[in-house]
Design a protein around this nucleic acid. Sequence first.
DNA 1: ACCTGAACACCGTTCAAGT
DNA 2: ACCTGAACACCGTTCAAGT
Lengths: 204, 204
Amino acid sequence: MPRPRSLSHAQLASAALAVIDRDGLAGLSMRSVAKELGMSTMALYRYVDDREELERLVVDLVLGTVDTVPPGPEAPWHDRIEVLVRRLRDAVAAHPEIVPLTVAHRHRSLAGLRWSESVLGVLTEAGFDGDRRVVALRGLLGYVIGAIQLEHLGPLSGEGTVAITELPPDAFPHMTETARHARKVSADREFLGGLALLLRGLGT
Amino acid sequence: MPRPRSLSHAQLASAALAVIDRDGLAGLSMRSVAKELGMSTMALYRYVDDREELERLVVDLVLGTVDTVPPGPEAPWHDRIEVLVRRLRDAVAAHPEIVPLTVAHRHRSLAGLRWSESVLGVLTEAGFDGDRRVVALRGLLGYVIGAIQLEHLGPLSGEGTVAITELPPDAFPHMTETARHARKVSADREFLGGLALLLRGLGT
DNA sequence: ACCTGAACACCGTTCAAGT
DNA sequence: ACCTGAACACCGTTCAAGT
Protein backbone atom coordinates (compact mmCIF):
# COMPACT_ATOMS: atom_id res chain seq x y z
CA MET A 1 0.00 0.00 0.00
CA PRO A 2 1.70 3.20 -1.19
CA ARG A 3 2.09 5.72 1.56
CA PRO A 4 0.99 9.21 0.66
CA ARG A 5 3.62 11.81 0.02
CA SER A 6 4.20 13.23 3.48
CA LEU A 7 5.89 16.45 2.46
CA SER A 8 5.11 19.40 0.21
CA HIS A 9 7.69 21.52 -1.53
CA ALA A 10 6.55 24.41 0.64
CA GLN A 11 7.24 22.47 3.84
CA LEU A 12 10.63 21.50 2.54
CA ALA A 13 11.49 25.10 1.69
CA SER A 14 10.25 26.34 5.09
CA ALA A 15 12.39 23.81 6.90
CA ALA A 16 15.45 24.85 4.89
CA LEU A 17 14.74 28.52 5.54
CA ALA A 18 14.33 27.80 9.26
CA VAL A 19 17.77 26.18 9.27
CA ILE A 20 19.26 29.16 7.45
CA ASP A 21 17.65 31.70 9.77
CA ARG A 22 18.89 29.80 12.80
CA ASP A 23 22.36 28.61 11.73
CA GLY A 24 23.20 30.75 8.73
CA LEU A 25 23.73 29.69 5.16
CA ALA A 26 26.76 27.68 6.21
CA GLY A 27 24.47 25.57 8.38
CA LEU A 28 22.36 24.50 5.41
CA SER A 29 22.92 20.93 4.30
CA MET A 30 20.80 18.03 3.18
CA ARG A 31 21.47 16.47 6.56
CA SER A 32 20.48 19.52 8.60
CA VAL A 33 17.25 20.02 6.66
CA ALA A 34 16.38 16.34 7.05
CA LYS A 35 16.96 16.57 10.77
CA GLU A 36 14.78 19.69 10.92
CA LEU A 37 12.00 17.62 9.34
CA GLY A 38 12.64 14.53 11.44
CA MET A 39 13.38 12.37 8.44
CA SER A 40 16.37 10.58 7.02
CA THR A 41 18.68 12.57 4.78
CA MET A 42 17.88 10.50 1.76
CA ALA A 43 14.15 11.03 2.08
CA LEU A 44 14.69 14.55 0.74
CA TYR A 45 15.70 13.12 -2.60
CA ARG A 46 12.12 11.91 -3.04
CA TYR A 47 11.11 15.55 -3.35
CA VAL A 48 14.10 17.23 -4.83
CA ASP A 49 16.69 16.29 -7.43
CA ASP A 50 19.64 17.72 -5.61
CA ARG A 51 20.79 20.46 -3.27
CA GLU A 52 20.50 23.03 -6.01
CA GLU A 53 16.79 22.45 -6.37
CA LEU A 54 16.35 22.76 -2.62
CA GLU A 55 18.09 26.13 -2.75
CA ARG A 56 15.83 27.25 -5.53
CA LEU A 57 12.80 26.35 -3.44
CA VAL A 58 14.10 28.60 -0.68
CA VAL A 59 14.57 31.48 -3.10
CA ASP A 60 11.08 31.01 -4.45
CA LEU A 61 9.64 30.91 -0.94
CA VAL A 62 11.21 34.24 -0.03
CA LEU A 63 10.71 36.03 -3.35
CA GLY A 64 7.19 34.60 -3.48
CA THR A 65 6.22 36.95 -0.66
CA VAL A 66 6.89 39.98 -2.85
CA ASP A 67 3.76 41.72 -4.05
CA THR A 68 4.34 42.10 -7.80
CA VAL A 69 1.15 43.98 -8.56
CA PRO A 70 2.45 47.34 -9.79
CA PRO A 71 1.31 50.28 -7.65
CA GLY A 72 -1.37 52.63 -8.94
CA PRO A 73 -0.92 53.73 -12.55
CA GLU A 74 -1.59 57.32 -11.62
CA ALA A 75 1.88 57.57 -10.06
CA PRO A 76 4.93 58.53 -12.16
CA TRP A 77 6.58 55.47 -13.67
CA HIS A 78 9.84 55.94 -11.77
CA ASP A 79 7.95 55.98 -8.48
CA ARG A 80 6.15 52.80 -9.47
CA ILE A 81 9.44 51.08 -10.21
CA GLU A 82 10.95 52.33 -6.97
CA VAL A 83 8.09 50.70 -5.08
CA LEU A 84 8.68 47.38 -6.83
CA VAL A 85 12.40 47.56 -6.07
CA ARG A 86 11.75 48.40 -2.41
CA ARG A 87 9.43 45.43 -2.04
CA LEU A 88 12.08 43.09 -3.40
CA ARG A 89 14.76 44.60 -1.21
CA ASP A 90 12.56 44.33 1.89
CA ALA A 91 11.76 40.68 1.22
CA VAL A 92 15.44 39.80 0.96
CA ALA A 93 16.31 41.92 3.98
CA ALA A 94 14.03 39.72 6.07
CA HIS A 95 16.40 36.80 5.36
CA PRO A 96 19.76 38.34 4.51
CA GLU A 97 21.57 35.01 4.57
CA ILE A 98 19.84 33.93 1.37
CA VAL A 99 21.42 36.72 -0.70
CA PRO A 100 23.97 34.38 -2.32
CA LEU A 101 21.16 31.96 -3.18
CA THR A 102 19.03 34.63 -4.85
CA VAL A 103 21.98 35.55 -7.03
CA ALA A 104 22.84 31.98 -7.95
CA HIS A 105 19.27 31.00 -8.81
CA ARG A 106 17.93 34.31 -10.02
CA HIS A 107 17.15 33.25 -13.55
CA ARG A 108 15.57 29.96 -12.49
CA SER A 109 13.21 31.31 -9.84
CA LEU A 110 9.65 31.75 -11.04
CA ALA A 111 9.01 34.35 -8.36
CA GLY A 112 12.02 36.33 -9.55
CA LEU A 113 10.84 36.17 -13.14
CA ARG A 114 7.41 37.39 -12.07
CA TRP A 115 9.04 40.42 -10.49
CA SER A 116 10.94 41.18 -13.70
CA GLU A 117 7.72 40.77 -15.66
CA SER A 118 6.07 43.35 -13.44
CA VAL A 119 8.93 45.83 -13.86
CA LEU A 120 8.78 45.33 -17.63
CA GLY A 121 5.05 46.04 -17.52
CA VAL A 122 5.65 49.42 -15.91
CA LEU A 123 8.47 50.21 -18.33
CA THR A 124 6.28 49.30 -21.27
CA GLU A 125 3.42 51.49 -20.06
CA ALA A 126 5.97 54.28 -19.69
CA GLY A 127 6.75 53.96 -23.38
CA PHE A 128 9.96 51.95 -23.29
CA ASP A 129 10.44 49.41 -26.05
CA GLY A 130 13.09 47.71 -28.17
CA ASP A 131 16.71 48.04 -27.12
CA ARG A 132 15.90 50.76 -24.65
CA ARG A 133 13.64 48.47 -22.69
CA VAL A 134 16.22 45.67 -22.67
CA VAL A 135 18.92 48.00 -21.40
CA ALA A 136 16.59 49.49 -18.80
CA LEU A 137 15.66 46.11 -17.32
CA ARG A 138 19.24 44.88 -17.44
CA GLY A 139 20.47 48.04 -15.76
CA LEU A 140 17.89 47.81 -13.01
CA LEU A 141 18.56 44.11 -12.42
CA GLY A 142 22.29 44.70 -12.30
CA TYR A 143 22.00 47.52 -9.82
CA VAL A 144 19.46 45.79 -7.60
CA ILE A 145 21.43 42.55 -7.42
CA GLY A 146 24.73 44.28 -6.81
CA ALA A 147 23.44 46.85 -4.36
CA ILE A 148 21.56 44.29 -2.27
CA GLN A 149 24.73 42.27 -2.00
CA LEU A 150 26.83 45.26 -1.04
CA GLU A 151 24.29 46.08 1.62
CA HIS A 152 24.62 42.68 3.26
CA LEU A 153 28.35 42.26 2.71
CA GLY A 154 29.74 45.29 4.43
CA PRO A 155 28.39 48.37 2.66
CA LEU A 156 30.22 51.63 2.54
CA SER A 157 28.14 52.78 5.51
CA GLY A 158 28.42 49.59 7.58
CA GLU A 159 31.15 47.60 9.32
CA GLY A 160 33.15 47.48 6.10
CA THR A 161 33.58 51.21 6.41
CA VAL A 162 35.35 50.90 9.72
CA ALA A 163 38.02 48.73 8.11
CA ILE A 164 38.33 51.23 5.29
CA THR A 165 38.70 54.12 7.71
CA GLU A 166 41.77 52.37 9.06
CA LEU A 167 43.52 52.13 5.70
CA PRO A 168 46.76 54.09 5.27
CA PRO A 169 45.45 57.57 4.39
CA ASP A 170 48.43 58.41 2.22
CA ALA A 171 47.74 55.51 -0.15
CA PHE A 172 43.95 55.84 0.08
CA PRO A 173 43.23 59.51 0.71
CA HIS A 174 39.82 59.58 -0.96
CA MET A 175 38.69 56.24 0.42
CA THR A 176 39.45 57.12 4.02
CA GLU A 177 37.80 60.50 3.74
CA THR A 178 34.75 59.16 1.92
CA ALA A 179 34.42 56.29 4.37
CA ARG A 180 34.45 58.71 7.30
CA HIS A 181 31.73 60.70 5.61
CA ALA A 182 29.82 57.55 4.63
CA ARG A 183 29.27 56.58 8.25
CA LYS A 184 26.62 59.26 8.48
CA VAL A 185 24.81 58.09 5.34
CA SER A 186 22.04 55.60 6.07
CA ALA A 187 21.75 52.32 4.18
CA ASP A 188 18.40 53.48 2.84
CA ARG A 189 19.83 56.69 1.48
CA GLU A 190 22.69 54.80 -0.18
CA PHE A 191 20.50 52.18 -1.77
CA LEU A 192 17.70 54.47 -2.87
CA GLY A 193 20.14 57.20 -3.89
CA GLY A 194 21.87 54.88 -6.32
CA LEU A 195 18.53 53.72 -7.66
CA ALA A 196 17.44 57.33 -8.13
CA LEU A 197 20.54 57.95 -10.25
CA LEU A 198 19.63 55.07 -12.51
CA LEU A 199 15.99 56.15 -12.80
CA ARG A 200 17.08 59.69 -13.51
CA GLY A 201 19.34 58.41 -16.26
CA LEU A 202 16.39 56.55 -17.72
CA GLY A 203 14.24 59.69 -17.75
CA THR A 204 13.57 61.37 -21.06
CA MET B 1 69.10 24.33 9.58
CA PRO B 2 65.91 26.20 8.67
CA ARG B 3 64.90 25.66 5.10
CA PRO B 4 64.03 28.81 3.20
CA ARG B 5 60.41 29.53 2.46
CA SER B 6 59.92 27.79 -0.85
CA LEU B 7 56.75 29.57 -1.91
CA SER B 8 55.62 33.14 -2.40
CA HIS B 9 52.06 34.36 -2.07
CA ALA B 10 52.12 35.11 -5.78
CA GLN B 11 53.04 31.53 -6.65
CA LEU B 12 50.32 30.26 -4.40
CA ALA B 13 47.74 32.51 -6.03
CA SER B 14 48.88 31.54 -9.53
CA ALA B 15 48.56 27.85 -8.71
CA ALA B 16 45.05 28.38 -7.37
CA LEU B 17 44.08 30.41 -10.43
CA ALA B 18 45.49 27.70 -12.69
CA VAL B 19 43.29 25.14 -10.94
CA ILE B 20 40.25 27.40 -11.32
CA ASP B 21 40.92 28.08 -14.99
CA ARG B 22 41.32 24.36 -15.66
CA ASP B 23 38.66 22.77 -13.41
CA GLY B 24 36.37 25.64 -12.53
CA LEU B 25 35.72 27.16 -9.13
CA ALA B 26 34.23 23.87 -7.94
CA GLY B 27 37.62 22.26 -8.55
CA LEU B 28 39.34 24.62 -6.13
CA SER B 29 40.32 23.02 -2.84
CA MET B 30 43.28 23.08 -0.52
CA ARG B 31 44.09 19.59 -1.76
CA SER B 32 43.93 20.46 -5.46
CA VAL B 33 46.12 23.54 -5.04
CA ALA B 34 48.64 21.56 -3.02
CA LYS B 35 48.76 18.91 -5.74
CA GLU B 36 49.23 21.65 -8.37
CA LEU B 37 52.27 22.80 -6.40
CA GLY B 38 53.55 19.30 -5.70
CA MET B 39 53.33 19.74 -1.95
CA SER B 40 51.33 18.25 0.84
CA THR B 41 47.96 19.83 1.56
CA MET B 42 49.02 21.02 4.96
CA ALA B 43 52.06 22.83 3.63
CA LEU B 44 49.70 25.52 2.34
CA TYR B 45 48.85 26.46 5.89
CA ARG B 46 52.41 27.71 6.29
CA TYR B 47 51.53 30.51 3.88
CA VAL B 48 47.87 31.09 4.42
CA ASP B 49 45.57 31.08 7.43
CA ASP B 50 42.70 29.32 5.76
CA ARG B 51 40.91 28.80 2.47
CA GLU B 52 39.40 32.26 2.67
CA GLU B 53 42.82 33.89 2.58
CA LEU B 54 43.79 31.75 -0.40
CA GLU B 55 40.69 32.99 -2.23
CA ARG B 56 41.58 36.57 -1.40
CA LEU B 57 45.03 36.05 -2.91
CA VAL B 58 43.38 34.90 -6.14
CA VAL B 59 41.15 37.97 -6.24
CA ASP B 60 44.14 40.23 -5.63
CA LEU B 61 46.09 38.49 -8.37
CA VAL B 62 43.37 39.09 -10.94
CA LEU B 63 42.33 42.58 -9.84
CA GLY B 64 45.99 43.48 -9.48
CA THR B 65 46.29 43.42 -13.27
CA VAL B 66 43.86 46.32 -13.57
CA ASP B 67 45.51 49.59 -14.48
CA THR B 68 44.11 52.03 -11.93
CA VAL B 69 45.84 55.13 -13.25
CA PRO B 70 42.91 57.31 -14.37
CA PRO B 71 42.95 58.11 -18.07
CA GLY B 72 43.91 61.59 -19.26
CA PRO B 73 42.32 64.42 -17.28
CA GLU B 74 41.40 66.22 -20.49
CA ALA B 75 38.58 63.71 -21.10
CA PRO B 76 35.09 64.24 -19.62
CA TRP B 77 34.80 62.68 -16.18
CA HIS B 78 32.14 60.19 -17.24
CA ASP B 79 34.39 58.89 -19.99
CA ARG B 80 37.23 58.54 -17.51
CA ILE B 81 35.04 56.50 -15.20
CA GLU B 82 33.80 54.37 -18.04
CA VAL B 83 37.40 53.48 -18.90
CA LEU B 84 38.10 52.44 -15.30
CA VAL B 85 34.95 50.32 -15.24
CA ARG B 86 35.84 48.67 -18.55
CA ARG B 87 39.30 47.77 -17.31
CA LEU B 88 37.84 46.09 -14.24
CA ARG B 89 35.24 44.25 -16.31
CA ASP B 90 37.87 43.05 -18.78
CA ALA B 91 40.14 41.74 -16.02
CA VAL B 92 37.31 39.71 -14.52
CA ALA B 93 36.17 38.51 -17.93
CA ALA B 94 39.58 36.88 -18.42
CA HIS B 95 38.74 34.57 -15.48
CA PRO B 96 34.95 34.47 -15.23
CA GLU B 97 34.96 31.66 -12.68
CA ILE B 98 36.34 33.97 -10.01
CA VAL B 99 33.28 36.23 -10.09
CA PRO B 100 31.85 34.77 -6.86
CA LEU B 101 35.23 35.25 -5.20
CA THR B 102 35.50 38.91 -6.18
CA VAL B 103 32.10 39.52 -4.65
CA ALA B 104 32.83 37.66 -1.44
CA HIS B 105 36.20 39.33 -0.86
CA ARG B 106 35.55 42.67 -2.47
CA HIS B 107 36.06 44.78 0.62
CA ARG B 108 39.15 42.90 1.73
CA SER B 109 41.07 43.01 -1.52
CA LEU B 110 43.72 45.71 -1.66
CA ALA B 111 43.57 45.74 -5.46
CA GLY B 112 39.82 46.28 -5.32
CA LEU B 113 40.22 49.12 -2.88
CA ARG B 114 42.82 50.72 -5.13
CA TRP B 115 40.29 50.67 -7.96
CA SER B 116 37.68 52.37 -5.78
CA GLU B 117 40.27 54.94 -4.74
CA SER B 118 40.91 55.73 -8.38
CA VAL B 119 37.22 56.12 -9.16
CA LEU B 120 36.86 58.41 -6.16
CA GLY B 121 39.75 60.48 -7.44
CA VAL B 122 37.97 61.10 -10.72
CA LEU B 123 34.70 61.87 -8.97
CA THR B 124 36.44 64.32 -6.67
CA GLU B 125 38.13 66.11 -9.57
CA ALA B 126 34.70 66.31 -11.20
CA GLY B 127 33.43 68.22 -8.20
CA PHE B 128 31.62 65.50 -6.25
CA ASP B 129 31.86 65.66 -2.49
CA GLY B 130 29.95 64.84 0.67
CA ASP B 131 26.87 62.65 0.41
CA ARG B 132 26.78 62.95 -3.34
CA ARG B 133 30.19 61.34 -3.67
CA VAL B 134 29.27 58.52 -1.30
CA VAL B 135 26.11 57.78 -3.23
CA ALA B 136 27.93 57.99 -6.56
CA LEU B 137 30.60 55.47 -5.55
CA ARG B 138 28.07 53.17 -3.93
CA GLY B 139 25.84 53.30 -7.00
CA LEU B 140 28.73 52.53 -9.34
CA LEU B 141 29.99 49.69 -7.17
CA GLY B 142 26.51 48.20 -6.91
CA TYR B 143 25.94 48.34 -10.63
CA VAL B 144 29.37 47.03 -11.57
CA ILE B 145 29.21 44.11 -9.16
CA GLY B 146 25.68 43.16 -10.10
CA ALA B 147 26.08 43.63 -13.84
CA ILE B 148 29.30 41.62 -13.99
CA GLN B 149 27.58 38.80 -12.22
CA LEU B 150 24.56 38.91 -14.50
CA GLU B 151 26.88 38.79 -17.45
CA HIS B 152 28.52 35.57 -16.30
CA LEU B 153 25.39 33.99 -14.89
CA GLY B 154 23.08 33.95 -17.86
CA PRO B 155 22.51 37.53 -18.94
CA LEU B 156 19.35 38.68 -20.65
CA SER B 157 21.16 38.30 -23.97
CA GLY B 158 22.83 34.95 -23.26
CA GLU B 159 21.76 31.38 -22.62
CA GLY B 160 19.46 32.50 -19.84
CA THR B 161 17.40 34.26 -22.46
CA VAL B 162 16.66 31.04 -24.30
CA ALA B 163 15.04 29.61 -21.17
CA ILE B 164 13.07 32.83 -20.75
CA THR B 165 11.88 32.70 -24.35
CA GLU B 166 10.31 29.36 -23.52
CA LEU B 167 8.25 30.67 -20.62
CA PRO B 168 4.47 30.58 -21.00
CA PRO B 169 3.81 33.78 -22.95
CA ASP B 170 0.40 34.35 -21.37
CA ALA B 171 1.90 34.55 -17.87
CA PHE B 172 5.06 36.36 -19.00
CA PRO B 173 4.10 38.42 -22.04
CA HIS B 174 6.69 41.16 -21.56
CA MET B 175 9.47 38.81 -20.56
CA THR B 176 9.11 36.57 -23.58
CA GLU B 177 8.93 39.49 -25.95
CA THR B 178 11.81 41.35 -24.35
CA ALA B 179 13.94 38.20 -24.27
CA ARG B 180 13.35 37.64 -27.96
CA HIS B 181 14.42 41.19 -28.62
CA ALA B 182 17.35 40.90 -26.20
CA ARG B 183 19.01 38.18 -28.23
CA LYS B 184 20.07 40.82 -30.70
CA VAL B 185 21.57 43.07 -28.03
CA SER B 186 25.26 42.42 -27.42
CA ALA B 187 26.68 41.89 -23.95
CA ASP B 188 28.77 45.02 -24.41
CA ARG B 189 25.77 47.13 -25.29
CA GLU B 190 23.84 45.82 -22.28
CA PHE B 191 26.65 46.37 -19.81
CA LEU B 192 27.77 49.74 -21.11
CA GLY B 193 24.19 50.87 -21.72
CA GLY B 194 23.30 50.34 -18.08
CA LEU B 195 26.47 52.10 -17.00
CA ALA B 196 25.65 55.02 -19.28
CA LEU B 197 22.26 55.36 -17.57
CA LEU B 198 23.94 55.62 -14.20
CA LEU B 199 26.52 58.13 -15.42
CA ARG B 200 23.80 60.15 -17.07
CA GLY B 201 21.90 60.19 -13.78
CA LEU B 202 25.04 61.47 -12.08
CA GLY B 203 25.41 64.32 -14.56
CA THR B 204 24.52 67.81 -13.46
C1' DA C 1 61.70 26.40 10.46
C1' DC C 2 59.47 23.88 7.17
C1' DC C 3 56.88 20.05 5.70
C1' DT C 4 54.21 15.60 6.20
C1' DG C 5 50.40 12.03 7.10
C1' DA C 6 46.90 10.43 9.90
C1' DA C 7 42.74 11.66 11.81
C1' DC C 8 38.30 14.30 12.80
C1' DA C 9 34.13 16.16 11.67
C1' DC C 10 31.88 17.32 8.13
C1' DC C 11 29.80 17.37 2.88
C1' DG C 12 26.44 15.59 -1.49
C1' DT C 13 25.02 11.61 -3.50
C1' DT C 14 24.61 6.35 -5.04
C1' DC C 15 22.93 2.07 -4.07
C1' DA C 16 20.76 -1.87 -2.07
C1' DA C 17 17.53 -2.97 1.19
C1' DG C 18 13.42 -2.57 4.12
C1' DT C 19 8.04 -1.83 4.72
C1' DA D 1 5.60 4.06 -3.39
C1' DC D 2 7.97 5.80 0.24
C1' DC D 3 11.70 5.77 3.39
C1' DT D 4 16.18 4.13 5.51
C1' DG D 5 21.30 3.23 6.54
C1' DA D 6 25.64 2.06 4.91
C1' DA D 7 29.04 3.42 1.91
C1' DC D 8 31.83 6.37 -1.45
C1' DA D 9 34.36 10.12 -2.69
C1' DC D 10 35.04 14.23 -1.38
C1' DC D 11 35.78 18.74 1.90
C1' DG D 12 38.64 22.16 5.59
C1' DT D 13 41.33 21.91 9.43
C1' DT D 14 43.83 20.08 13.96
C1' DC D 15 47.48 17.76 15.78
C1' DA D 16 51.56 15.12 16.56
C1' DA D 17 55.53 13.77 14.31
C1' DG D 18 59.47 13.91 11.12
C1' DT D 19 63.86 16.43 9.10
